[in-house]
């Protein structure tokens, strides 16, 4: 069968098949079915590649749809009045509101006392020590006594941490399960930013887990939000803010959190 430029040559010499249009139409009609089949049945690496490609396609599709929608609006939009009162020198400016709105909402909310102790996920599943730790059974002495533990959940380990000598190390936090960054969402603004973690404030299951920096669903972490430009009342840039983890990091391979308002 001719390939590449020979195809073109062949077409010039002999023309296309007589049923080309018919076949193209049928192929296009089957496309949806084909995609669906692939999405359901591919496995492994191929599935991964396919999903990624499809993800990008969908993004493009949504963008296109949005553009069409904007085009369909009739006439100029009415002059929009900003919702929050701002002085005349800030009118008509496209204000980068996100970070600032973020901080002022936090402040307004803090003013109400009851809100101070409310967190997005109030109830957390308890995690037993049996689930969290795996007993290490290597080496003669360790095997006999069985005092060494491996943490089986994701952890946050501070940047200046150095492991203790093997003889004294009771808890091992595996390198593969360490996290440094979290995707932090502001609940009302729906802005998500990836921020570095500063520390684990509280793991509600067990104070020991807090010490170890175990990241499970419902854990309160402190994140570095200095990039957002949030300002404290004394005019300094706010550095750390608390956030609560909303997903099961051990299942998802990423860390999602909600900023505490």
């Amino acid at each position: 069968m001719p390939q590449n430029e020979y195809i073109e040559r062949h077409r010039k010499l002999h023309g296309r098949r007589l049923d080309t249009e018919e076949r193209a139409r049928k192929k296009a009609a089957r496309e949806g079915h084909k995609q669906s089949e692939n999405a359901q049945n591919l496995r492994g690496l191929r599935a991964k590649l396919y999903a990624k490609e499809r993800h990008h396609q969908k993004i493009q599709m949504r963008k296109a749809i949005k553009q069409h929608e904007e085009r369909n609006v009739k006439g100029a939009p009415a002059e929009k009045e900003p919702s929050d009162p701002i002085p005349s020198y800030l009118l008509d400016r496209a204000n980068p509101t996100t970070a600032k709105a973020l901080s002022s909402q936090i402040k307004n909310k803090r003013a109400e006392k009851a809100a101070r102790f409310s967190v997005p996920i109030p109830k957390v599943r308890g995690i037993s020590e049996e689930e969290l730790f795996k007993v290490v059974k290597t080496g003669k002495k360790i095997q006999q006594k069985g005092w060494k533990r491996v943490v089986t959940k994701p952890t946050f380990v501070g940047p200046d941490f150095t492991r203790r000598p093997v003889k004294y190390e009771r808890f091992i936090r595996p390198m593969g399960l360490r996290y440094k960054k979290a995707n932090v969402t502001h609940p009302t603004l729906n802005v998500t930013v990836q921020l570095p973690i500063l520390g684990v404030k509280k793991n509600p299951s067990n104070p020991l887990y807090t010490q170890l920096g175990v990241l499970t669903k419902g854990t309160i972490i402190e994140v570095n939000c200095s990039d957002l430009g949030i300002v404290t009342a004394s005019g300094k840039i706010a550095w750390g803010r608390y956030a609560q983890i909303t997903n099961n990091p051990e299942n998802d391979g990423c860390l999602n959190a909600v900023l505490l308002v």
Partner: peptide
Amino acid sequence: SKDCTLKVWNARSGNLAMDLPGHEDE
């Protein structure tokens, strides 16, 4: 400023004469 503070400056030396925090917002 937007950072919730007023600052008083000495125009002659350019030094900060007084920092006045107290506002809760911009």
